[in-house]
Design a protein around this nucleic acid. Structure first.
Lengths: 185, 185
DNA sequence: AAACGTATGGACCAGATAGTCCGAATCAGG
DNA sequence: CCTGATTCGGACTATCTGGTCCATACGTTT
């Protein structure tokens, strides 16, 4: 979507109308109550698309859970690399922009991150037999997301593929720190 | 500064004039060539302030380097907590907002992150005797910054102090992973 | 085919915003 | 006290924004 790339504020309703080949303002306001409503909708849409495609790999039943997590991290890295580092995270951009714009946005964003985290949590829960007892799935999932978000943001700024790959690799190492001795990843 | 809190786009020149008690538009345009120029200036100012106060602890000569790093992480956590999670990172907000607005902004932001990273690198370099051989100071410094940025962004969205503390604690654990056996942090 | 309700096009409005411009005030030196 | 230059104040312009409104096209039912 346009908004994901260019930001919410910087995308005018006229832009949206042109891009979506709507016939006019009233056509737009037929679908959306206001621009804010559009923002919420886009956010939800964005997450659903992400949950469908991006997060799908986390649920892949034929692959070992930890391996799945690594693949997921890799997939984010290659997505960002392919797209020339223009996107950052699907939500990170919108998050820092919209969070203080509107209480409703903030709540929705919280929800989005929570749902993402819970996907990782259930993966980690599944991987429990391989993990050490100290491993806290909730904390670990949040850590993973935060690092990924930060890495994507920074790679968007610096456009440095090496940096992104390095952080991703270190993140995997951090996760593997929680794997029991004698268990292959 | 105003812009750091409210964002660049959402702060009008009139806002700046009022807030800085300037006499009028021409007064503003006497100091700055354009609004973009102001943005660059603010960014530099912001980093200098951060380097002076926030990063100062990293250079504190009387404290063990790794201990300093932990204190620095703690200081970011408490700053964000004190301010009610409204700020996020000093740069993260501006970064994702301004990076694709203007090539000049992007370059300046890259510089800012690099300078921050190099401060952490020299700290890690100093701590070399305590670290394992595999520890790569450049990569580690980037990882630390990315995780902090992501954590600050997410805590700004969720306003969850617990989450921020958890990520910070895990980050310290990750750093301590690179400390040689038998060396107290 | 008439009548009616709904979708549509796009002109229009009010408010905001970056940036310009010119007249007035201030202050220097003679 | 006058003159000239520099700074200051804020009115003004052009443009863009989200949002409204109404007349018309269309389709459906009778």
């Amino acid at each position: 979507m346009l908004i994901a790339e260019r930001g919410f504020k910087r995308t005018s309703i006229d832009d949206v109308i042109e891009h979506a080949s709507l016939s006019g303002k009233s056509h737009f306001y037929h679908y959306f109550k206001s621009k804010d409503q559009l923002g919420l909708e886009v956010l939800s849409r964005q997450f659903e698309k992400f949950a469908e495609r991006g997060l799908a790999i986390l649920r892949e039943p034929m692959i070992e859970p930890i391996e799945r997590l690594n693949l997921f991290i890799d997939s984010l890295v290659s997505l960002q690399t392919e797209r020339g580092f223009r996107i950052g995270s699907p939500f990170g951009n919108l998050a820092s922009e919209m969070a203080d714009l509107h209480e409703g946005f903030r709540e929705r964003l919280t929800l989005v991150f929570e749902r993402w985290a819970s996907q990782i949590q259930s993966l980690l829960w599944e991987a429990r037999p391989y993990l050490t007892e100290q491993a806290d799935t909730v904390r670990l999932s949040r850590f993973i997301i935060a690092t990924l978000e930060g890495a994507l943001m920074m790679s968007k700024v610096s456009r440095d593929a090496e940096m992104l790959r390095g952080i991703a690799a270190d993140l995997k190492r951090f996760v593997s720190m929680h794997i029991r001795e004698g268990v292959a990843a």
